[in-house]
Nucleic acid binder design. Structure first.
Lengths: 223, 223
DNA sequence: TTTTATTTTTAGATTTGTCTAAAATAATAT
DNA sequence: ATATTATTTTAGACAAATCTAAAAATAAAA
């Protein structure tokens, strides 16, 4: 069933993620950056993935993921996110600690294992970072969230996710106790730099635009 | 901490297991057989493991695992067996289904993950096949069990483990409902071929010597 | 529309783990 | 004790994934 190497799976995952950020096709160098490797290595791999019909690849023209490739990518993402839920909910890891472990666990091949894990976790729809978990067929619920940076002063919001997944960013949020599920209200928005003062459980602190941009929320009460 | 490849880990595990069966040093061809590969490949790997001081290797003289190599092997075995407990106890897999999945899971590197898993499972001392689970330092409880084949007619025994782990053998036992925890009494031992008639919950059936040899038991009541 | 700069691809090496076939060593049998 | 057989190691090759450096193609600027 899963006739792909771990490396191929990782490339597909990266291409899938980049496809959701890029308008047209994904270019070689952006894949190289996101995989921390060289463009030459990426080109080699693109040929291999194209041979397997997981991507459409035209020399010098970049890459588009195929339906088939997308299904493979979504299955890896499904595993990754379910393992993240397991690690936080069952083994009580913090949400900013689980990514690396899930990167290894996502390549464990058994689909039956992941089906049972999903049932054991009671069919969660989102991972600890608020990202949706694809079902077996690759379908995923879209969480219609907005960026905290586009919120209004005086309004209460519930954090539903993050727009950036780097360990540095997550640990920064963790320091303030900010994570999905937490309620924040915007106390004041500074005109000159769009930074904001927010209130969380009586505590107030300052968030730069860079940070508030990457905090995803819904209006409080609307779930 | 774990600077070894998955392949190196698998070789070490195989060598460790063979060391427990062999009197003196482990020879190349037995490793090749147990790894389903060629002697040439084994020789190549032995050099690499010797360079890392995980084994003592003398050309043409076979191999002895070092203290350091044993620690690595025991850590893999620890992970393997804890994951097997997780798969059976938590995800409700049958004891004869979990080996292959555990072979993948055992290479997930995080020691913290396995520590938490162990605690979550309430520090099990044996895996679903009755094999002891090493602790963090590599120590393991020895289960002083005997082979059912050396049992006496008219006596009741509790199954504690198996002496052979092939899927074929485990599925054969599963068919009769035989697995660790089950109580069997020996109804009769046939003189001519040492086969035996056993009783399990009112049902009687016949076990060949080949099978009874590989069923490990304790006298009923003695745990 | 040339020239320049950037991006992408090729060419050729390297590393890991594997293989087959041949050579070297050890074990066994006469 | 020597010949035969079996085991183990070497030699040389290959596939996967990577790299650096150079060539080719595309995009941007003059």
């Amino acid at each position: 069933m899963q006739q792909h190497t771990e490396t191929e799976e990782n490339y597909l995952k990266a291409i899938y993620h980049l496809s959701n950020v890029t308008i047209s096709s994904v270019n070689t160098s952006s894949i190289a950056t996101s995989m921390s490797t060289t463009s030459a290595s990426v080109t080699d791999m693109l040929k291999k993935l194209a041979d397997k019909e997981l991507i459409n690849y035209e020399k010098y023209k970049g890459v588009k993921i195929t339906r088939k490739g997308e299904k493979v990518a979504l299955n890896i993402i499904r595993k990754h996110r379910l393992w993240e839920v397991f690690l936080t909910k069952v083994l009580k890891f913090e949400w900013d600690e689980v990514h690396t472990m899930a990167e290894e666990l996502e390549h464990v091949s058994s689909d039956e294992l992941i089906k049972r894990l999903e049932a054991y976790l009671d069919f969660p729809k989102f991972d600890p970072h608020g990202d949706p978990i694809p079902d077996q067929t690759g379908k995923l619920e879209i969480n219609d969230q907005m960026s905290l940076s586009s919120g209004d002063a005086g309004v209460k919001y519930t954090i539903t996710g993050v727009g950036e997944h780097s360990s540095a960013f997550l640990k920064h949020l963790a320091k303030y106790g900010l994570k999905p599920g937490i309620t924040v209200s915007i106390a004041e928005i500074m005109e000159f730099d769009k930074s904001m003062l927010v209130k969380v459980n009586k505590e107030k602190f300052h968030l730069s635009l860079e940070v508030s941009k990457n905090i995803l929320v819904k209006k409080y009460g609307i779930i």
